[in-house]
């Protein structure tokens, strides 16, 4: 029981990180109809900007952890957004309207480019960070297995829930969110009612990048070490989460992320750690066979 609960906690925390990245995939796909394969690299850049900001704060002597975390959070969200914005502006916008294959190849190219860019600037070695948040709450002490909910996991879960609630309200309640949904449903018609489609797409990349940067920060805090290659596997898993949840659906991305995190945690705990990535992808294949629109995806056409 205790062991099961522990895996549940670990899986949730991990799944929240995937979910945050997956939102970026799903929103961009929903509006532009392309898979932004460089999104995993945006997450990786978010993690690098976080570690650099931590080091700078250490140098200037900001020692109070909550303040340091807040500064890092804001810095990485802002700076990573700039990368997301520039990526769309430079690489994808000129290709809008050209065949999907061209956009796909460009996305893969940008992914390779960004990896090399970070490798060149930061070196290929692992970047470690001393634990920033330590300790945790213990439950079921004295039972056969003591469950720990670390303060870091609490933070990850709370921040992610906060971001997702805020983000969902933004999509459902604000004029910007309405414009994004309109673009998703009919790009040409959205322009025809007066929406600046280019601007809306830019903002979508900015939002996706800032959520991914938070995931990058959490990944850094959770694992304590990053390198220029972390965007690949995390990106593929988050993409899997987006497809699992139903690509184009924001709640689907969150759900898919949580499921992938849980599958990974439970698989590692009860079966073999080596095959944990395979498990996630196997589930994806099953979903695609039996429910191709994903769990919360909408069918392509509706009576119009």
């Amino acid at each position: 029981m205790g062991y099961f609960l522990q895996q549940l906690i670990n899986g949730l925390a991990l799944g929240m990180i995937y979910g945050l990245i997956a939102i970026g995939y799903t929103m961009v796909y929903g509006i532009v109809g392309m898979i932004n394969f460089a999104h995993g690299e945006i997450f990786m850049i978010g993690a690098f900007i976080s570690i650099i900001t931590f080091l700078v704060l250490g140098l200037v002597g900001v020692g109070w952890v909550p303040l340091a975390l807040l500064i890092v959070l804001v810095a990485t969200m802002l700076l990573t957004s700039v990368y997301g914005w520039a990526l769309e502006r430079v690489a994808y916008r000129p290709l809008r309207g050209s065949p999907r294959l061209a956009a796909l190849i460009t996305a893969i190219g940008m992914s390779i480019f960004l990896q090399n860019y970070v490798q060149l600037l930061q070196g290929a070695r692992n970047k470690p960070l001393q634990p920033v948040i330590t300790g945790g709450a213990r439950f079921l002490e004295g039972g056969d297995f003591t469950v720990t909910l670390s303060y870091l996991q609490m933070l990850i879960i709370l921040v992610t829930i906060g971001l997702m609630v805020g983000f969902t309200m933004l999509i459902n309640r604000t004029a910007l969110g309405r414009a994004q949904r309109a673009c998703q449903q009919d790009l040409g018609m959205a322009a025809l009612v007066g929406i600046d489609v280019d601007r809306t797409i830019s903002l979508t990349f900015v939002m996706g990048a800032s959520l991914a940067s938070v995931a990058g920060l959490m990944f850094l805090l959770n694992y304590g070490v990053i390198d220029f290659y972390i965007g690949f596997l995390a990106g593929v898993k988050a993409f899997t989460a987006a497809v699992l949840g139903g690509i184009g659906s924001v709640p689907g991305a969150m759900l898919g992320g949580l499921l992938i995190g849980l599958i990974e945690a439970f698989w590692s705990a009860y079966f073999t750690v080596e095959y944990k990535d395979v498990a996630a992808f196997a589930i994806l294949v099953l979903v695609l066979i039996f429910r191709p629109t994903g769990l919360l995806g909408k069918p392509e056409v509706e009576k119009v």
């Binding site: 449903q185 009612v193 119009v304």
Partner: peptide, 30 residues
Amino acid sequence: THAIVRRGLAQSPEGRRIFPFMTVLENLQM
């Protein structure tokens, strides 16, 4: 396009093209 319609032109296009997953009110807000 968006700059053209902002000058005071509106179109109800062929096929209607309402936003199907939005409510009636949201469509009017659009």
